[in-house]
C-alpha cells in the first residue's frame, strides 16, 4: 500500500492477532481504511472476517496488535467505546432484539431523552432513515421478530447510520436483501463514501465488491492474503487469492512485494 494512502487513513490495524482456544482466527493482520474510501474484505467461510469486525466493534479484544484511529492509538474494550469513537457496525447476525419493535431496536442504547423517552422524535427519525434505504417495512411498531430477513437487515443497517459515525463496518450487508434493497444499500455505501466516511464492507458477492469498493483486502485462513486496487484487478485474481491458488501472477507479485523484492 502506498504511503499516501496510509497518511489519510482513519483506521489502521497493525499485527492484529486473535485466537479462540486452539483456533488462530486472525494472525498478524494489517489493514488501512481511508476516509472517503470503501474497503471490501473478502475471504472464504471461516477466514476470520467476522472476527476482525468484532475486534473493531469492541465485541472481542484482540490478543495482540495495535489499532490507530484518526492517528491516535486506541483500545476498543467495549461496544460502547466503539460507538463513542464513531465506529458503527452492522453485524452478520444483525444483533437485533426480537422482542423489541423497529423504533426500539434502531435507538437501542441511544434513546432520545433518557428519562422521558421521546417516542415521536424517534419514530419520525426512524421513518426518515428507513425511507432513505427504501425500506419496505409496513409498520415500525411491530416487533422485529415479525419482519422478514431482508427487512431485519435493513433495520440493522439503518441503526448504524444513527449518531455520527466516521467508520461504518458492514458484515455481509446484502446477504438477505432483494434486488432493489441491494441496489439501495450499494447506493448508500457510495453516498457514505461521498460524505467522507470510511466504509468496510464484507461480502461474498464479487459483483457487489467490484461495483462499490475502492480496494479489496483478502483474508485467507486468518492471514492477510493481499490488498488490491479494484480498478486494477480481475474477479478471477481475487478469487484466486481467496482460495489460495498460489500459482498465479497476482499472488506471486504480492508475495514478492511483501518481501521487499522488486516485482
Amino acid at each position: 500500500m502506498s504511503p499516501t494512502q496510509q497518511a489519510d487513513s482513519v483506521l489502521s490495524l497493525r499485527g492484529i492477532s486473535k485466537t479462540f482456544g486452539a483456533v488462530a482466527a486472525l494472525t498478524d493482520i494489517d489493514l488501512d481504511v481511508a476516509a472517503g474510501q470503501v474497503m471490501a474484505i473478502v475471504g472464504d467461510n471461516g477466514a476470520g472476517k467476522s472476527t476482525l469486525v468484532k475486534i473493531l466493534s469492541g465485541v472481542h479484544p484482540p490478543d495482540s496488535g495495535t489499532i490507530t484511529f484518526e492517528s491516535r492509538d486506541i483500545h476498543i474494550p467495549t461496544p460502547a467505546a466503539a460507538h463513542k469513537l464513531g465506529i458503527a457496525t452492522v453485524f452478520q447476525d444483525l444483533a437485533l432484539c426480537e422482542n423489541l419493535n423497529v423504533i426500539q431496536n434502531l435507538f437501542l442504547g441511544q434513546e432520545v431523552r433518557p428519562l422521558r423517552l421521546n417516542d415521536v422524535a424517534m419514530e419520525t427519525r426512524s421513518w426518515d432513515l428507513l425511507r432513505q434505504l427504501s425500506a419496505k417495512i409496513p409498520s415500525v411498531r411491530v416487533p422485529v421478530a415479525a419482519l422478514s430477513g431482508g427487512q431485519r437487515q435493513t433495520v440493522a443497517i439503518a441503526r448504524s447510520l444513527l449518531g455520527d459515525p466516521k467508520v461504518i463496518i458492514l458484515d455481509e450487508p446484502t446477504a438477505a436483501l432483494g434486488v432493489a434493497q441491494t441496489a439501495e444499500v450499494l447506493n448508500l455505501v457510495e453516498r457514505l463514501r461521498e460524505n467522507g466516511l470510511g466504509v468496510i464492507m464484507i461480502s461474498h458477492n464479487m459483483a457487489d465488491v467490484q461495483a462499490v469498493a475502492d480496494t479489496v483486502a483478502v483474508l485467507r485462513l486468518g492471514r492477510n492474503n493481499g490488498v488490491f486496487d479494484v480498478g486494477a484487478v480481475s474477479t478471477e485474481e481475487i478469487i484466486a487469492a481467496i482460495t489460495g491458488a498460489t500459482d498465479n501472477a497476482v499472488s506471486q507479485r504480492q508475495a514478492r512485494r511483501k518481501e521487499g523484492l522488486p516485482s
Binding site: V59, P79, A95, L96, C97, N99, G109
Partner: peptide, 16 residues
C-alpha cells in the same frame, strides 16, 4: 427488555 430479549445484541448496542 433488550437484555431479556437478546443479551448479546444489548451488549453490542453499547448497553452496560
Amino acid at each position: 427488555y433488550a437484555v431479556g430479549g437478546n443479551v448479546e445484541a444489548a451488549r453490542r448496542a453499547g448497553i452496560n
